[in-house]
Amino acid sequence: CHSECLGNCSQPDDPTKCVACRNFYLDGRCVETCPPPYYHFQDWRCVNFSFCQDLHHKCKNSRRQGCHQYVIHNNKCIPECPSGYTMNSSNLLCTPCLGPCPKVCHLLEGEKTIDSVTSAQELRGCTVINGSLIINIRGGNNLAAELEANLGLIEEISGYLKIRRSYALVSLSFFRKLRLIRGETLEIGNYSFYALDNQNLRQLWDWSKHNLTITQGKLFFHYNPKLCLSEIHKMEEVSGTKGRQERNDIALKTNGDQASCENELLKFSYIRTSFDKILLRWEPYWPPDFRDLLGFMLFYKEAPYQNVTEFDGQDACGSNSWTVVDIDPPLRSNDPKSQNHPGWLMRGLKPWTQYAIFVKTLVTFSDERRTYGAKSDIIYVQTDATNPSVPLDPISVSNSSSQIILKWKPPSDPNGNITHYLVFWERQAEDSELFELDYCLKGLKLPSRTWSPPFESEDSQKHNQSEYEDSAGECCSCPKTDSQILKELEESSFRKTFEDYLHNVVFVPRKT
């Protein structure tokens, strides 16, 4: 048989008469490798580009789960590009990614509803959504962080984005990388972005840091009482949809009607710091009717980097990364020049730590249904340095008659930039024990000054392991946590139920 035959053949030295091919099969003959313009397919066939392209389009058009959109890589027609490569849609070739590779997620039936953290986790790592997304989240724990972890990498949506009755959302900033909504599939009414009845939605994105392009379709905003109209108009300008909307697409009466839409800028007039305090004062603000001013709200939190936005980490279910302080308005003076500047002394802060701070007014709604208010920009203030805590785990070892090696770990709280350490030492008198000992005694162990690591005695271990207080009263049991108490109650309830079950099964009433 021919060298490319495997198993047997019907005619000697003829690659077209093989029972099976050793390498690849091409047009009725066995070959060692697939010549151009053919590609290896499933490690035994040679196919042309049209064959591989037909497989790709067949799966793409069917949208069946589990099928493969075949691509070409290293002269092979394979189910998908290997790690580190992405497909070129024009020629199906796998090309190296520039940075992290995109991950295209194809949605069944063309859309997916995100109504819980669990459903959001199914899209973790996706960068391109081939379909439409509907966000409908009523509640949950730590929602802002969970949504950002699972949806934060999405850069492109081919269909539309719909935010509907998501009472738990305060902001859409968890879509931190969303840059493009194509609108290839539109919501009824030709809408590519749809926001309806979101009672706590206050911000779409921080438009000073976020760009969003909507290729096709219109915007729809109705019944978002805490979303200011200025935020919607800003989205029109940034996304390129200005002029597409009709009169009733953006409701003037049901958007922002319960919001404090600040239209003035508060400026800080005085800032002073110490290692654990920050004193702030800002310019006074009074609405047209000074009785509408209820006070100020001061927001602050630790910020290692200057990239904080107002609604980071917030949701309507209680999660809030900001510390909020309510401040009463100052006494009002008739003389504008003698107006008191409101302020606040922030206490209990960490030394040498940068804080993000902003302040906003708290006002009631005027009778004319106009909203007044003022808010400052987010500023960054760093507390002063102070003395560091003591170095940890000092170790001293003498390696000769004239040297001592000293080692330690950095302090747990540096409280500033540590530039150097101060080492103090003092000579001590020799131990009298060394002169009084009889060095001729056998088995004498000389006193040693070398360091030995501390260890816990058996008594201390027994005390720590004991669940009861000892007789001397030195140790006591740790208080039980809520989960331990709940577990004990469940076990007790189970024992009672099981005992009742045994009584009912074992003891049967005697027939009379």
Rank of each mutant, 00 (worst) to 15 (best):
G256Y: 08
F275N: 08
R369D: 03
P342H: 12
L219A: 10
I114L: 10
H341Q: 13
V128Y: 15
M235F: 05
A120I: 06
S269Q: 06
I214F: 14
I378R: 03
E155Q: 04
N307M: 03
D115R: 04
L392Y: 14
N130G: 04
L201S: 00
R281K: 03
R347V: 11
W282S: 00
D289M: 02
E148K: 08
P287D: 07
F290M: 02
Q382L: 06
G125D: 10
I114K: 00
R370K: 10
L227I: 14
F175C: 03
K218R: 11
R202F: 08
P329S: 05
H222I: 02
S260K: 05
K112P: 01
G295W: 15
N200Y: 04
V324Q: 03
W322L: 02
K209G: 09
S260F: 02
A259V: 12
L298R: 00
R272K: 00
K375T: 07
G373F: 02
D312C: 03
A251F: 07
L219C: 08
S400C: 09
P391N: 02
E187H: 09
E184V: 06
K337R: 06
T383L: 01
L294G: 12
A195G: 12
G318P: 07
F358L: 03
Q203I: 04
Q354K: 06
F299S: 03
G243T: 11
K226M: 11
L169I: 08
S171M: 05
L298F: 11
L108H: 11
D249S: 05
G256T: 01
L201M: 02
K162T: 01
A356R: 02
P388S: 02
W352E: 08
E184M: 02
I181T: 01
I404C: 04
R370A: 13
T118F: 11
K253E: 11
W282V: 04
L107C: 14
L265Y: 11
L153E: 13
E246H: 11
E146D: 04
N263H: 04
N255R: 05
W207S: 05
G139N: 12
V324H: 05
P336I: 03
Y194Q: 06
G243M: 06
S171C: 04
V390D: 06
K103E: 11
K267F: 11
A316S: 11
L331R: 12
S166C: 11
S166L: 09
G183V: 01
A303M: 05
L406F: 15
S173T: 06
Y160H: 15
L196F: 03
Y380A: 02
Y380I: 02
L227C: 05
F174T: 05
L266G: 01
N248L: 10
C261T: 11
R281T: 01
V381T: 03
T215Y: 09
Y194S: 08
S321L: 13
V397R: 11
L147C: 03
N150V: 03
G217Q: 01
G217P: 01
S389V: 03
D326K: 05
L293V: 05
T364L: 01
K177Y: 11
L212S: 04
V397Y: 14
E187A: 05
C126I: 01
K267P: 09
G139C: 14
V381C: 03
Y285L: 14
L293C: 07
D328P: 15
I154Y: 00
V325A: 14
F365L: 04
G295K: 14
K162I: 03
A120Q: 03
P336S: 07
S389P: 02
S208T: 09
A374Q: 03
V170T: 10
D335K: 09
T273D: 01
K267L: 08
F268N: 00
P225S: 05
N399P: 13
D249H: 03
R281W: 00
F221K: 01
I214K: 00
D367T: 10
R281L: 00
S274T: 12
D115H: 11
G343M: 05
W352K: 10
C228S: 01
N307T: 06
T383A: 01
C261V: 10
P351F: 07
D328S: 04
N190R: 09
E368Y: 10
M297C: 06
K360W: 15
K409C: 13
G159R: 04
E283L: 06
F220Y: 02
R272V: 00
L265T: 05
F268H: 01
S396P: 15
I405N: 10
L147M: 10
E302G: 15
E246I: 04
T323V: 14
I135M: 06
C317Q: 03
K277F: 05
H106S: 07
S132K: 02
M235G: 03
R138V: 13
G125V: 10
K337D: 15
Y194I: 08
G348Y: 01
D328F: 09
G125M: 12
L108T: 12
L392M: 15
V128W: 14
G140E: 05
W286G: 08
S274Y: 08
T185H: 15
H222S: 03
R176A: 05
L123Y: 13
Y355Q: 00
E122A: 15
F174A: 08
K226A: 08
E283V: 13
F268S: 01
A120W: 04
K350V: 04
T371D: 05
D115W: 01
L293K: 05
T113D: 02
I214H: 03
A195N: 12
S192V: 11
N211V: 12
V128N: 01
D367Y: 13
G295H: 13
P388W: 00
E122D: 07
L133E: 00
L298W: 01
K209A: 12
T215F: 09
Y305M: 14
N211H: 11
L280G: 00
V238T: 05
N190G: 08
G140F: 06
E155I: 15
L266I: 04
L219N: 07
E246D: 13
L151Q: 00
Q203T: 11
I188L: 09
N334C: 03
L178R: 00
Q203M: 08
S333T: 07
L169T: 09
V117F: 14
N387R: 08
D292L: 10
G348P: 11
Y223P: 00
A120F: 06
S171F: 06
L151H: 01
A259I: 15
D315S: 10
R369S: 08
P329R: 11
I232G: 02
Y167N: 15
D326G: 07
T386R: 07
W207C: 03
T113A: 10
T127E: 00
K360D: 02
L345R: 04
S389Y: 03
R179F: 09
K226T: 05
K234V: 12
D312G: 09
I405L: 15
S333F: 01
T254Y: 08
K409M: 07
S192P: 05
C317K: 01
L204Q: 01
N200T: 03
T118S: 05
G318V: 08
L331T: 14
T386S: 11
G131P: 00
H233P: 03
G152T: 01
L298Q: 00
T113S: 13
L169C: 15
S239K: 08
D335L: 05
D326R: 02
K267I: 13
L133I: 02
I214M: 14
N130K: 04
S319L: 11
E237N: 14
E237T: 09
S239Q: 06
L107T: 12
L172Y: 01
L252N: 12
V128E: 01
W322R: 01
R370M: 03
I214N: 03
I327T: 04
E237R: 11
A149W: 14
S398P: 10
G313Y: 04
F311S: 08
P410A: 13
S239D: 03
F174C: 11
W322H: 05
K234W: 08
R247H: 12
I357C: 15
E156M: 10
R138T: 05
E283W: 02
K162R: 10
L172V: 09
L294F: 09
G243S: 08
I181Y: 00
D257P: 03
L178P: 00
E283K: 05
P351S: 07
R332P: 07
G125F: 03
G110Y: 11
K242H: 03
Q306M: 00
T371A: 08
P388V: 01
D377K: 08
V381P: 09
R347P: 13
F221R: 00
I395Q: 05
N130E: 10
L252Y: 04
K301V: 05
D206K: 15
S158T: 08
Y160N: 12
R291S: 14
P225G: 15
S171T: 08
I188V: 14
P391E: 02
S192D: 01
P411S: 02
Q382D: 05
K209M: 13
I405T: 03
G189A: 12
P329A: 06
E262C: 06
C228N: 08
L133F: 04
G295I: 04
E155M: 10
T364D: 15
S398M: 01
K407S: 05
W286N: 07
R138N: 15
S132Q: 02
H341D: 11
D249T: 14
F220S: 13
F268Y: 06
S119T: 07
E302Q: 10
T323H: 15
I250E: 06
A385T: 14
E187T: 09
S116Q: 02
K301A: 12
A259K: 13
L180P: 00
T241W: 12
G159D: 01
D249K: 15
Q339E: 04
E146W: 07
K103A: 08
L143Q: 15
D289H: 06
